[in-house]
């Protein structure tokens, strides 16, 4: 079997090993790379920037712990930007872990950095079962869906929620999603209540979300770690996403290399077979 034939039928374990090495190398030999800003990330940044100081913003943690690598940098960058603008943040999640765990952890950590007070500057509504019902129901009354916050405190006891009754009181929604809940924020909340939505999501979801960009249903989009890195640059707080781009770069190059090698192998094998048949 020639080299190219071997490349075409390469055992998948070699591929796994190569990917593993490509991920590890940037941690040993870090190489900072320049990252340009896409129009989608810029327009999301501009939309948040254009909000009047002190606006009520819903920050939605619709992602599982599995996609922390891509989504958490977006959440942290969003908190930086929103708290810096003194926006009042209402967090919630349609994922069981999102509200009680991730939203609680990240928002509290960021709020401490900016000296914000729970109940006055931010509130965590937590998680409630059934996202279609939750998103529809909040259009009429947030309190009927979430009578209490994540820790069990009644919404009527939280000063921030005095001025937030339903979507009419929300200036902007920052949705961070690794799943299809983003579609429902578009079809229920944006389409029926007209609240502007900006979205950050995993890279695999990004191509689908492009359909919502040009229709104006998303004001901007952060696609995966690259999107997170762009936002970190825009708010001038470069952190995990910018670092993570190095590993992602090498793995992308590796995959392109594997595809090229596989195809050369394919053509070499095919031409040999043709010659053999002739």
């Amino acid at each position: 079997m020639s080299f190219w034939e071997r490349m075409e039928k390469l055992d998948r374990r070699w591929v796994y090993l190569a990917v593993g090495i490509a991920v590890i190398i940037p941690f040993i030999l870090p190489t900072p790379l320049p990252i340009s800003i896409t129009t989608e990330a810029q327009s999301l940044f501009d939309a948040v920037e254009a909000l009047p100081d002190g606006s009520n913003v819903m920050l939605v943690y619709d992602y599982y712990p599995s996609t922390i690598a891509e989504c958490e940098p977006i959440a942290i960058a969003a908190c930086h930007h929103l708290f810096r603008k003194n926006c009042k943040i209402i967090t919630l999640s349609n994922i069981p872990y999102g509200g009680p765990s991730m939203a609680e952890k990240i928002t509290r950590m960021m709020a401490d950095q900016y000296g914000k007070t729970y109940g006055v500057d931010y509130v965590n509504l937590g998680y409630k079962y059934g996202y279609v019902a939750v998103l529809s129901g909040m259009g009429q009354s947030i309190e009927s869906i979430f009578p209490a916050d994540n820790s069990g405190t009644l919404l009527s006891e939280l000063p921030l929620m005095d001025s937030v009754k339903n979507y009419e009181d929300i200036a902007f929604i920052f949705e961070i999603a690794d799943n299809a809940t983003a579609d429902y924020w578009v079809s229920i909340v944006n389409a029926q209540y007209g609240v502007p939505i900006g979205c950050g999501g995993t890279a695999v979801m990004a191509p689908k979300f492009y359909a919502y960009i040009s229709s104006g249903q998303f004001v901007g989009l952060l696609g995966g770690m690259r999107g997170a890195a762009e936002y970190e640059i825009l708010i001038n707080k470069q952190a995990d996403a910018v670092k993570g781009m190095q590993a992602q770069s090498l793995v992308h190059l590796l995959i392109i290399g594997l595809v090229i090698f596989g195809n050369v192998g394919f053509f070499v094998t095919r031409s040999k077979q043709k010659r053999g048949a002739a």
Binding site: V15, Y16, A18, Y64, S66, A69, L258, V259, G262, N263
Partner: peptide, 21 residues
């Protein structure tokens, strides 16, 4: 959970190498 999600990178590389012809 993150580890399980990360295995996607390995599977994507293997599937791309096998299926992209």
């Amino acid at each position: 959970m993150s580890t399980m999600f990360a295995t996607l990178a390995f599977y994507i590389a293997s599937a791309a190498h096998r299926a992209f012809r």
